[in-house]
């Protein structure tokens, strides 16, 4: 945590990546944001240290205090919906998955059109801003192995390796039936690996659990040899345990987190400034060092050596909102 903060402050001192002319035209936004006095962000980071490091760097750089309301995804969406239905506009900006934003758009006008964000022009493919939101980080998932139980020669290099009969009964998995990381992986691999993959994986009788943080430790303790899907960032703080994340050759399924300005935001300029800040190389570097591939160009190569393989990992996905119910139904069929 302390290291992250230091990194954030050093990164701040490095200055903003904007050229001088752009900075001139951007200065009124900074002034207006400062005049607004604060920023209220609704997010689903639940106090993640890298997220807090970005908030601190924003506060240090602009002197604008940030209030963060941390909630789980569905509670976040419902809180925003209820507040706005009651005419209470308290939040400025939300950070939530791309599919949730798509859904919010279908259900009503909870978010404003995205204002011009200069740093959004620096997004690297396949990431791009939409009319209403902009990707700010991604959460990719790989395969976690216990290095004492999985011999070097047996380390899976492809998602298909999970269907090898030798792993039958030895795989722990996030439940693939409800919405969540398990189902996200299920849906993305259904497309990527073909229709045979999930039925074959089901034959391995993976054991389902719903507690991702504890599950990685269960694998480390040797209860199971393999855990899927392992969010890269959740492994960065398990250094010293006999576990390792493998990124299969086909790539890592991922969920995409986006920022959007909430309707009637009381501090719209602060919201705009914050989005700009989150897409700055210094903020992106904080995320890259926590093993999450950056969404802007020119950052992955600057990540710490241990974070490099993850910062540059091949990504597959994200899952599509339109397919969500059919994928959940399919998972339920394969895992009755």
């Amino acid at each position: 945590m302390r290291m992250l903060l230091k990194a954030a402050i050093v990164a701040c001192l490095m200055g903003c990546a904007l050229p001088a002319r752009a900075q001139d035209s951007w200065q009124p936004v900074i002034d207006a944001a400062r005049k607004e006095g604060k920023l209220v962000i609704y997010d689903m980071a639940l106090g993640a240290p890298y997220f807090i490091a970005v908030l601190k760097s924003f506060e240090a750089k602009y002197g604008i205090p940030v209030e963060s309301l941390d909630l789980r995804a569905s509670e976040l969406a419902e809180r925003i919906r209820t507040e706005q239905s009651a005419g209470r506009y308290l939040g400025d900006v939300e950070m939530i998955t791309s599919t949730m934003i798509e859904e919010q758009r279908q259900n009503g006008d909870f978010i404003e059109k995205l204002p011009d964000i200069p740093n959004a022009r620096n997004l690297r493919p396949p990431f791009r801003a939409t009319e209403y939101s902009v990707p700010v980080f991604v959460q990719p998932m790989g395969i976690l192995i216990n290095t004492r139980l999985v011999k070097d020669a047996d380390i899976p290099v492809s998602w298909n390796d999970l269907t090898d009969p030798k792993w039958k009964g030895k795989i722990l998995s996030d439940d693939m039936r409800p919405l969540g990381s398990g189902n996200t992986m299920f849906a993305i691999l259904e497309h990527q690996m073909g229709a045979d993959f999930n039925p074959k994986l089901a034959e391995q009788k993976p054991v389902f659990s719903r507690d991702m943080r504890n599950d990685a430790r269960r694998v480390a303790r040797g209860e199971f040899a393999i855990y899927v899907p392992q969010i890269f960032a959740f492994t960065s703080d398990l250094k010293g345990l006999p576990v390792k994340v493998v990124v299969p050759k086909e790539g890592a399924p991922y969920a995409q987190m986006e920022l959007a300005v909430l309707k009637n935001a009381p501090h719209p300029n602060a919201a705009r400034l914050f989005i700009q800040h989150f897409l700055s190389p210094e903020s992106q570097l904080i995320y890259a060092n926590a093993w999450m591939p950056p969404v802007v160009a020119g950052v992955a190569e600057r990540a710490n050596p241990d974070a490099q393989p993850f910062a540059e990992a091949k990504l597959i996905g994200p899952a599509k909102l339109a397919e969500r119910s059919s994928m959940m139904a399919l998972a339920k069929k394969l895992y009755p």
Partner: peptide
Amino acid sequence: SVGSEVLSVVLLKLWANGNA
């Protein structure tokens, strides 16, 4: 809301961040 966090919410955050 911001400022009125309670211990159970703090615990949830710690748990969600792997601080068992």
